[in-house]
Design a protein around this nucleic acid. Sequence first.
DNA 1: CATGTGTAAGTAAACGTTTACAAAACCTCG
DNA 2: CGAGGTTTTGTAAACGTTTACTTACACATG
Lengths: 338, 338
Amino acid sequence: MAGIKDVAERAGVSIATVSRALSGRGNVSQNALEAVRRAADDLGYVVSASASGLASGRTRNIGVLLPQINHWFYAKALEGVSSALLREGFDTTLYQLTKEPQERKRIFGDFLLRQRVDAVIAINVELDESELTALHALNKPLVGVGGPLPGAPTLSLDEQALADLAVGHLRALGHERIGYLGGSNDMDLDFQLSSHRRQCFVTAMRQAELEIEPALFQGADFTMEGGYQAAKQLLGNPAAHPTALFAASDEMAIGALLAARDLGVDVPSRLSVVGIDNHDLAELFELTTIGQNPAEQGADAAKLLIDALLGRAPAEHHLAGHRLIVRGTTAQRTADFD
Amino acid sequence: MAGIKDVAERAGVSIATVSRALSGRGNVSQNALEAVRRAADDLGYVVSASASGLASGRTRNIGVLLPQINHWFYAKALEGVSSALLREGFDTTLYQLTKEPQERKRIFGDFLLRQRVDAVIAINVELDESELTALHALNKPLVGVGGPLPGAPTLSLDEQALADLAVGHLRALGHERIGYLGGSNDMDLDFQLSSHRRQCFVTAMRQAELEIEPALFQGADFTMEGGYQAAKQLLGNPAAHPTALFAASDEMAIGALLAARDLGVDVPSRLSVVGIDNHDLAELFELTTIGQNPAEQGADAAKLLIDALLGRAPAEHHLAGHRLIVRGTTAQRTADFD
DNA sequence: CATGTGTAAGTAAACGTTTACAAAACCTCG
DNA sequence: CGAGGTTTTGTAAACGTTTACTTACACATG
């Protein structure tokens, strides 16, 4: 393995100059720069991460904290983060924050303290007080994606705008009785997003002066299966008779579509359905949805962090984009259930 | 930040002893061990990854190479890898190997050469000659998951057994005309898994002495949408009239289920469907499938690698488990199309 | 008791960079 | 041409560990 000394020798300069030339810190003449680049290239020299990290305190590595990976949002967000980081020459280190207390403890007590990361991106994680403290105690740039990360800039959706948009779309089509699939009724146990989203829906309904009845709410766990079951309950309940459904995720919305089909309720003539996400499957099911782009959110978070690290700009709160995508599951209201 | 010196001082021993005590290398008396542990705990000392890495050449970090993350198999496998690594105190660094040549070049030419990883797990990546050479040139333990990784031990399914099992199951139910959804006809462009799986199906059919007709094969890209389109073609083609379908992935199988429903072909009375994977959605669709467990495969790969790193045992080839899960989409053949 | 064996601990030399500091080289201008 | 400034370069001291080598000590053996 070629070291910096070999490069220096071959380029006919000192190792300090090599370091400066390759890292882009400090002044180096055009001549030296080229000589060094050529020498490094010839020797296939790549700086040792450990040595560089030890000497400089910078690791060019960013930690990503997330609760799971096998899920559309997280997987997409992670793809966005890792692509953006790669482009800037940063490594991505993964910390999967499961529910397991032992594992969580080790992540905050060991892994993150090893000084292996320059900064941390937390994707929709729920932290308790002590974990949050531990995270801030790292004294490193921090950014949240999706869920809020108290005390740190966050990139997230404008939930109220989303709810207004969905309700507005349905209202414009003549729908008044709109069912909601999302955070369960005993919602305190749920993750924050869930109850917040639901609250925004209630506000939107109120502003649109539409009825809000308990029967129109069905708890579901954001999965397709959950949406299927919840929709069956909601559509089967004669007290509910909604003409439209707003699901807090596309997966639930698709579950609802399957349930409607099984119940013989035609979409969109008898029932309109709107989701949130623009999930990969939304197109196949012709689902009308409010799209978001987790990959972009992840990439933006990464860029924010890198800017902060390079002192370009401080990281700030930031709203993620969304847009209504009208497909085939919403239509003018024609008839009620009753 | 407390350093090793602080711990040594507090514990009343030399830094060498602290290093030995904390890393578990070399002999340390019970007394010293406890004193050091206590001191480290009190000070909240955690070894610096850079310093340790520089001095020892070991990083306690493993690189994971994969083509994408937003996909059931990869996401699950990655979850398995990262959990297993976490348990052993290893970090997981992600390298997403997209199609983009520039990015690939940087991964092999820069990132992997920084000496940040002790070993590499490659999940179903397709490498060209030079990339493979570069990977081997790292001179680090290597393990493949899913697809084969020439020159390195691999953890993968016994494809022939899978095909035999699927065909055997359908055959036992009386099916003779079995359609196949998978690697496209002009398959050379596809990833290896695709054509291999198809080949095994052909072999299984031949051994079962069942007809193999071009009309019974439909190319699809392993997605639900792809499966939907392919199944429509296959089921709509009067020359094909299969009574059963074998899809090379559950997602395609589910797509086929949707297509059958749209065409008014009842499953399982008129058509049986078998998939591969036991995807998260398989249960919702009551899909009969041959299940595999990517998380387990990932975890096994991680353990293999760690064993190799710790000199416990050399990494070896290894077959991943699979099992037939009979649900509601397969049944006795009753009537043919024709 | 001398000798050999084994374990425990300390000393100090790596490990491969970055960077503060100092020196040298080069400009610009009066 | 020389003073003053700026840019470029080199020297050497960190950075925080691990580990080879050495010493000290305890214990068993003949």
